[in-house]
């Protein structure tokens, strides 16, 4: 009795794991595999492996379309917005973590309650703001909106990591004659690097994958980001499946590679964001 129940338990456990792995990677594997097949092969034998490896579809994409440009747009927008917001929110998180001043709790509450605002609910006012700044169809307009997105989450993470840095270090530096800015920049900022990495990775990934505001705030080809390119490609070659799959592969791969490089950090980031979420 006991033994059979144990076997059942083990079988169930491994079935759940197998299922999880299959739903997570099989679709992506299928997409990548199909990008190397001909259109006829995709239609006639969707499960088979490609008979020969052909990079034609990829070559075509990079030749005919500004794929490199979309990639660079994504990279510029995400890197700049992530770095600027990290700086802004770490300054805010730092003073909230380390000092007492009038309005401290109010500000922290206001910053973190923004977590409750669905991004799309603010669509029209932010659209209006970007129009007013004359940044429509400009990658800096998208970057500007993105830099505001991680406010609540970053405040949580950064405040906690600055609080973990002993105050005695600040005092020692103050006695040595270091000013406010030096204490922040030379002592606290470097020591908070794991919190900064966590918040940074989360914001970067969110921005990298963001679709809603990118589609709302741009329309031209040379301001397109990678996620947006997808929509455009379905329209451009609706029955040329090889190219569609190749386009999907190109859009999906950078995120996966980034994840593989920083796997542990990403997992920790997501876990900690959820706790606060």
């Amino acid at each position: 009795m006991k033994k059979s129940s144990n076997i059942l338990f083990t079988v169930l456990m491994y079935s759940v794991m197998a299922f999880t792995i299959v739903v997570s990677v099989f679709p992506i594997f299928w997409v990548i595999m199909s990008a190397f097949k001909t259109n006829a092969q995709i239609l006639s034998s969707p499960f088979s492996l490609p008979t020969s490896i052909s990079f034609d579809a990829f070559a075509y994409l990079f030749e005919k379309y500004n794929f490199v440009k979309y990639f660079i747009n994504s990279l510029i927008i995400c890197t700049s917005s992530t770095l600027v917001s990290l700086l802004i929110f770490s300054m805010g998180g730092y003073v909230i973590a380390k000092f007492d001043f009038p309005g401290k709790n109010l500000f922290f509450a206001l910053f973190t309650i923004t977590l409750l605002v669905p991004a799309q609910a603010k669509a029209q006012p932010l659209f209006g703001l970007v129009m007013k700044l004359d940044l429509y169809d400009n990658i800096w307009g998208v970057a500007l909106v993105y830099l505001s997105m991680g406010l609540a989450m970053s405040m949580f993470i950064l405040k906690a990591s600055f609080m973990a840095i002993p105050k005695s270090l600040d005092e020692a530096a103050a006695i040595e004659g270091a000013g406010f800015f030096t204490i922040f920049w030379k002592i606290n900022f470097p020591l908070a690097k794991s919190g900064l990495a966590t918040a940074g990775i989360l914001m970067f990934l969110n921005n990298w994958n963001e679709y809603f505001y990118a589609s709302l705030l741009t329309s031209a080809d040379d301001t397109r980001t990678l996620p947006l390119a997808l929509q455009f490609f379905t329209e451009a070659f609706s029955y040329d499946y090889t190219k569609l799959f190749a386009a999907l592969t190109v859009v999906v791969l950078p995120g996966i590679l980034l994840y593989i490089l920083a796997q542990e950090q990403v997992q920790n980031s997501v876990a900690s964001s959820g706790i606060k979420g």
Partner: peptide, 22 residues
């Protein structure tokens, strides 16, 4: 398994929607 399960989450929802469309 934990590492692999994370992959769908680092891909944009847009790409994931397209994959399911196919």
């Amino acid at each position: 398994t934990r590492a692999v399960f994370m992959i769908p989450n680092v891909i944009s929802a847009a790409a994931w929607a397209m994959i399911y469309k196919f």
